[in-house]
């Protein structure tokens, strides 16, 4: 085939190639940039695992029947960009209880085991995050009597105080997002000044398992 007469590699190719390879190796350095903890779909709780194995194929966003899986953005860090995260503004994660009998479809379709549930993992014992209720923005704390989040919680992780104001039981909350998805604090007239998100938001966990609260000191 005449392959023998072919030059192995020209000098120019070698130089360009070495440069390009160095760039790809250099990109690996993004690993050492600080990466914000972010909410992950069931099975993605080990952050390292998602970043290491996710090939950004976008399959989990597509398959999610409640459309709560969305791509992370550059704002969450370069390594997180285009990896899956959760957005509970429209719906919550029921572990595909309705769509697939409680077997999360995102884990089923993930081709690279970036989302991988450990043995015996269930909706109850997998902590996606923990809900944080910010009383300054919460309608109930203005004694309006709103209790949508309390009613929505499927894990009985919320209670009402003497004034019918809901609060979160941290040790029972697994971060499914049901409370966040029904919170009306932003929709029904922005009562609280400066409110840029709902009054109850699921916060991600850090690597050490502590919650990354926005308001509460942790």
């Amino acid at each position: 085939m005449g392959e023998s007469e072919r030059p192995g590699i020209t000098r120019r190719s070698a130089v360009v190639g070495a440069g390009a390879a160095a760039v790809v190796l250099g990109l690996g350095g993004f690993r050492f940039l600080p990466t914000e903890p972010t909410l992950r779909p069931p099975g993605g709780q080990a952050t390292d695992q998602v970043v290491s194995a996710c090939i950004r194929c976008e399959k989990c966003y597509e398959i999610c029947p409640r459309e709560v899986i969305v791509p992370s953005h550059i704002e969450a860090g370069i390594l997180n960009m285009r990896t899956p995260t959760l957005d509970f503004s429209g719906d919550y994660c029921d572990w595909c209880g309705e769509a697939n009998n409680g077997d999360p479809l995102c884990d089923k379709v993930c081709p690279t085991l970036a989302l991988r549930l450990p043995e015996g993992a269930s909706a109850k014992n997998t902590i996606i995050g923990v809900a944080e209720l910010y009383t300054t923005w919460c309608l109930a704390y203005k004694l309006i009597g709103c209790r949508f989040c309390y009613d929505a919680c499927p894990y009985e992780a919320m209670e009402l105080d003497g004034n019918n104001r809901p609060y979160v039981l941290n040790d029972r909350c697994n971060g499914c997002g049901a409370c966040e998805s029904v919170c009306v604090s932003l929709q029904s007239g922005s009562i609280a000044e400066g409110a840029d998100e709902r009054a109850i938001i699921v916060r991600p966990l850090r690597q050490d398992g502590s919650v990354l609260y926005r308001w509460k000191p942790s």
Partner: peptide, 17 residues
């Protein structure tokens, strides 16, 4: 065209990286 060109370096670099 050489048997090896910059593409192969990028391929190797990607795997190594």
């Amino acid at each position: 065209r050489g048997t090896l060109d910059p593409r192969h370096f990028v391929l190797g670099g990607s795997l190594l990286s």
